[in-house]
Design a protein around this nucleic acid. Structure first.
Lengths: 333, 333
DNA sequence: TTGTACGCGTTATCAA
DNA sequence: TTGATAACGCGTACAA
């Protein structure tokens, strides 16, 4: 029926070349112990038959898949795309392929993902997902899958982690704001279910204000540009100033735009800071001051660490990125 | 050495449960012909031993991997992320896992990717990559890998395609611009190596202008916000008006910002249209008029078609999305 | 209903 | 330098 090639096997190559399949295997794997003539002969028949080794069978025999599992949330954020890009770069360089496991904001499903990671026989995994807690991760690890966890401090025999901290820089930013005479009341824009990172930032925000004895606000909104914009149009109909700390660029932009569209001036009346800055912070007007971590670098580092972990060469199982503050036009300082 | 579990095999489960491995296999695959008691017994031992079937061995035995290969360019664009998101949604729903093959702007490497797709034994592939031409795609297809090609018209025994057309709507937009008294000279912003999509748009742009006998410009720039911004700051120091058609939001935003920062008014002096609009067109100010295709929908559709193709149930091997025009504030019409 | 035995396409060990 | 042959972990006719 099909006029498509059926899969050519190593055995057929061997037969066509008049050698044993062991010899073909040696040629494929570029091992020595093959005379140039036989090698030539085999390589030609491989070419002629269009033979491609089955990664599946190879993996089964060697117990190595050259496959890395990537667990990420489904949220379509720029910084996740950046992370993925960094991972991809290194993966390509090192000859690994990536298998994507995408989780929703749903714990039972996240657990199902873990099952899949295990059955899929990846050589290692990078987990960037707030739904999964330490137990879950240790579970996947108990199946001997070397794992790098991003944005969560974990360590174990085959677990390393890459974390990033916004806390230091956030605290400093807040403190120096008041020290330098900042008069606006600061508000932390709380987004429901936005994960650990935002949670830690909020904690830092609260603690810093408590320590300084300053008043502050926490404002709830949704993790969506349009919702946030709508909420803040409402907000700015009653409040005419404030310093707002938002999760990411879209949210910050929504606040900024709402302020501008309400006739307020940024940064004179309203200041906005984005916690997870991306290139879009630089495109909107006024440009948005932000805390920054190069997520592509995080991805690269995670991948390098994972490869070391797989090769049992990872000495330092923990790495931390510190965010930097990038002043743009949405804040005075 | 390791206190981690070694991989538990089906054989060990069988032994522990006092049945044959065939029975365990039946339980796993939820086939009938197993008494509830044995099923129970087996399931308990599976639980107790923490057995997870090896997807590898399963795949080798069944010749099905439940693995879909996704070939995408490395460029870190929002619309690619959107596409991926649509694909992911359906994959999750249908129980497939995605393996990512990322290509650079480099043809030999893209060919290497094809090799990998074949050796990786995916059940099917979705290809969204301008580097690969029809021959390459037919090659992967000749290895019996069902394939959906995005943004390229192809058909074959196991190949379908999802295309999107900006041409109609672009032509209409241009024509009605002039019909309604648009006076600015239109310029197509050409980006080197940006692929077929932009190429087709440029062609439509040229043809429409030729047909109408209108003067036009083609301006070259790089596919980068900052480069484009710089180029257009330069440009607007000499030219004080124009209608610019740009590839994607970042480029359009760069032009718009350069215009604004040069003291020009958008859309009074300068109009800008983004060809591949994303949510960011709505966040920048003025908001950018754009042509739109919901890439997540494209992704979903591709995935659905691919699954049908795998099951030999795909009747219509071609599907086309038409872009829509979304007027925002960067154009008068 | 259950078990036996073979096949899936490789790698790897050991003889030859 | 080569070639049998046994794993790798599972599915599945076929037999019991």
């Amino acid at each position: 029926m099909d006029n498509l090639k059926e899969r050519v096997t190593i055995y057929q190559v061997a037969q066509a070349a008049g050698v044993s399949l062991a010899t073909v295997s040696r040629v494929i794997n570029k091992q020595g112990n093959v005379t140039p003539e036989t090698r030539d002969k085999v390589e030609r028949t491989i070419e002629r038959l269009g033979y491609k080794p089955s990664g599946l069978a190879q993996a089964l025999a060697t117990n190595r898949t050259t496959n890395i599992g990537i667990v990420i949330p489904s949220a379509n954020y720029v910084y996740i795309a950046n992370l993925l890009n960094g991972i991809t770069d290194v993966a390509k360089e090192k000859g690994f392929v990536l298998t994507l496991f995408v989780t929703s904001h749903n714990r039972t499903e996240a657990l199902g993902v873990i099952e899949k990671v295990i059955t899929t026989h990846v050589d290692g995994a990078i987990i960037f997902d707030d739904e999964l807690d330490l137990n879950d991760i240790m579970k996947i690890n108990s199946y001997s899958v070397p794992t790098i966890v991003v944005n969560n401090k974990v360590q174990g025999e085959k677990v390393g982690c890459v974390t990033f901290s916004y806390n230091e820089i956030l605290r400093k930013t807040i403190e120096s704001y008041y020290e330098n005479g900042g008069k606006k009341q600061m508000a932390f824009v709380h987004v429901h279910d936005a994960g650990r990172l935002l949670g830690r930032c909020e904690k830092t925000f609260l603690e810093t204000h408590e320590k300084l004895g300053r008043l502050y606000k926490v404002i709830n909104t949704d993790d969506s540009y349009s919702h946030t914009y709508r909420d803040f149009m409402e907000y700015f109909s009653k409040n005419k100033s404030g310093y707002f700390i938002a999760y990411r660029d879209s949210i910050a932009a929504a606040i900024e735009n709402a302020a501008t569209d309400s006739g307020l001036k940024v940064p004179e009346d309203v200041e906005v800071l984005s916690l997870v800055g991306t290139k879009y912070a630089n495109i909107v007007r006024p440009t948005i001051s932000s805390l920054n971590i190069d997520m592509a670098e995080v991805g690269k580092r995670s991948m390098y660490m994972l490869i070391d972990l797989i090769n049992r060469e990872l000495t330092d199982k923990s790495y931390s990125f510190e965010a930097t503050f990038l002043k743009r036009d949405s804040t005075n300082q």
